[in-house]
Design a binder for these strands. Structure first.
Lengths: 166, 166
DNA sequence: CTTGACTCTGTAGTGGCTACAGGTTGTCAA
DNA sequence: TTGACAACCTGTAGCCACTACAGAGTCAAG
């Protein structure tokens, strides 16, 4: 209380840019989480700016930490639910996490198989020749009936997740 | 020519459903590839149905094979360009493939690090207790400043790619 | 009083499909 | 002949987790 002008970092009354800096989250993403109901709508200043308290920073950190562990927002929503009911039993947290670890392990297995296939494909052409005789292009034209990439809800090698980095 | 009613599978004059069956590709996806310019628009029947020849099936197989290797449509577009110019040099094919192998390897490394983090997190809570004391939830609330998940254009564990399977 | 950094809302785009809605065409049996 | 039904057509919206604007408002410093 009575925090007025100072405390520029991690103070009680942050504007969105400061929260962004403190948590390493783009401003747009914070507003997105609010729209999605992951982060409660904060108080507003006279000029309609969002004013965040430490509790918001904490919750946002939780969310970002989970995201850095590649959990979906749905999974995070679930975890937040458990977090918000402290009397509840955390067995389901374990279950959720185990399931997530399973997803990651499955994706690693898939990617390893993929890597093997790609390397074997690469073996088919070692030097640059004319494309008509390129073993790689010819091999790719074969109608192979191998059912890789079943379902697993895992994600492509090339990514949607750009960078959290900061 | 003079193929009339018979040749139900892999004949010269397929309708979209048959092409879908032959290549294991959903009908909607075939139309999508056409819109995207990956697959040439085929001839049309009197009743405006798409009529495909074997060349289309071959090209679609190529595309699907590449997709099963988790290449992006942009990468596939490039490969098709090389394929369409048979006099061209395939050195760039090698380059593209090497880059793609690099992406996969990088993603595997990332996921292994992720798996390790998740397992260590899981260690924090072995039995179901009340959520307020759950080591996992508490750990996730920590503001850790580790910059996993840089960029790499790799993809989440949970996936956009549903299933190609058939 | 002006500049410029920050904030606001709302909307559109990303990739690679998928899932409709609402219509047309083709095929077969009764 | 009719009537049912599958397969086809176009067009549009939705998925996920953001990202990137446009166009307007707010605020502190010089």
């Amino acid at each position: 209380m009575l925090a007025t002008a100072f405390t520029p970092a991690e103070g009680e009354n942050m504007k969105i840019g400061e929260l962004a800096g403190v948590t390493g989250t783009p401003v747009e993403t914070i507003r997105y989480y609010e729209r999605e109901g992951l982060l409660a709508a904060p108080a507003r200043s006279e000029g309609n700016f969002r004013i965040y308290a430490d509790a918001h920073a904490e919750r946002l950190s939780f969310i970002r930490h989970c995201r850095s562990l590649d959990m979906t927002l749905a999974e995070i929503r679930e975890l937040l639910r458990f977090k918000d009911v402290p009397t509840g039993n955390c067995g389901e947290v374990n279950t959720l996490l185990d399931a997530h670890i399973g997803h990651v392990a499955a994706r690693i297995r898939e990617l390893r198989a993929l890597e093997k296939q790609l390397k074997s494909l690469r073996e088919r052409c070692h030097e640059a020749q004319d494309a008509a005789h390129c073993g790689i292009l010819n091999e790719l034209s074969q109608t192979s009936r191998n059912g890789t990439k079943k379902a697993g809800h895992l994600g492509s090698v090339h990514g949607n997740v750009r960078n959290v980095m900061a």
